[in-house]
């Protein structure tokens, strides 16, 4: 059968999600942000909640997320996304509210806001994109950087005696009574992407059922920050990040 006979509108099985805008993503080639944006858009489209969703964008590469997903957005000061989302959700309790944050934003400057929003059990969804560095500003060490990992501020590798231990913020959040669903996922291959999409869907449903805070950590790659190719970065992530940040549900109640 010729390719031209296959490419017909009635045979289409997968394409760009209509909730994504026409803007070209500014992210580097192979960046996990694009995939996670797409998954959020697909879940919003499938649940038909485009006009009922308010998201909070962080500081970092994904600050421009409001240009790409066609929903209502607020932009928070660095680290304050969970605090802003709390306000949005309390003022508009019938809306779906989620924050989209990197590890530098959520787990460094925003630790207090995140922990307290989770502890209060706000009915929001928190998406943590963990690439183990500050990607936008040039690959500096973040609290989630691995021991021995070379970054622009730890050129000889992260040393525990100087920089402390990597912070497993997701495990910390799972201990809190306010969280209902805490999971760690990834998006480097098709199976992982499908699992992450299921997790996002579940988190949104929890939010509708007022079960508490759902936190989804997506272990991601930052190939330009790690100075690797897109495919090499995914491999490095599987070899180095996954042993320390094992994937799976940490809490599901």
């Amino acid at each position: 059968m010729d390719v031209k006979d296959i490419i017909k509108p009635e045979n289409k099985v997968y394409g760009k999600c209509p909730v994504m805008t026409e803007k070209v993503l500014h992210y580097c080639p192979g960046c996990s942000h694009g995939t996670i944006h797409k998954l959020l858009a697909e879940v919003i489209d499938e649940m038909n909640i485009q006009d009922k969703t308010i998201a909070v964008s962080p500081v970092g590469c994904s600050v421009f997320a409001y240009n790409y997903i066609d929903i209502d957005w607020q932009q928070a000061a660095h680290g304050r996304a969970c605090a802003l989302a709390t306000g949005v959700k309390r003022l508009c309790p019938d809306k779906y509210v989620f924050t989209y944050q990197g590890d530098g934003d959520l787990a460094a400057i925003g630790t207090a806001e995140t922990i307290h929003a989770c502890n209060r059990g706000e009915n929001i969804v928190v998406i943590l994109v963990n690439n183990a560095i500050y990607g936008m500003t040039g690959g500096q060490m973040s609290p989630l950087t691995l021991e021995g990992q070379v970054t622009s501020t730890t050129p000889y590798g992260r040393k525990i005696e100087l920089n402390g231990y990597p912070l497993k913020i997701t495990n910390l959040a799972a201990q809190l009574d306010g969280t209902c669903y805490v999971t760690r996922q990834s998006v480097q291959n098709a199976a992982a992407v499908r699992r992450t999409k299921k997790a996002i869907r579940k988190a949104f449903e929890n939010s509708a059922q007022k079960k508490g805070t759902s936190l989804i950590e997506v272990v991601s790659s930052c190939n330009s920050g790690w100075k690797l190719s897109p495919i090499g970065a995914n491999k490095w992530m599987e070899d180095n990040l996954f042993p320390f940040y094992p994937l799976g549900d940490l809490k599901d109640k």
Partner: peptide, 12 residues
């Protein structure tokens, strides 16, 4: 599914 930039449309 894995394309970060949603550039691929699939027909089957």
């Amino acid at each position: 599914t894995v394309c970060p930039d949603s550039v691929i449309t699939v027909y089957r």
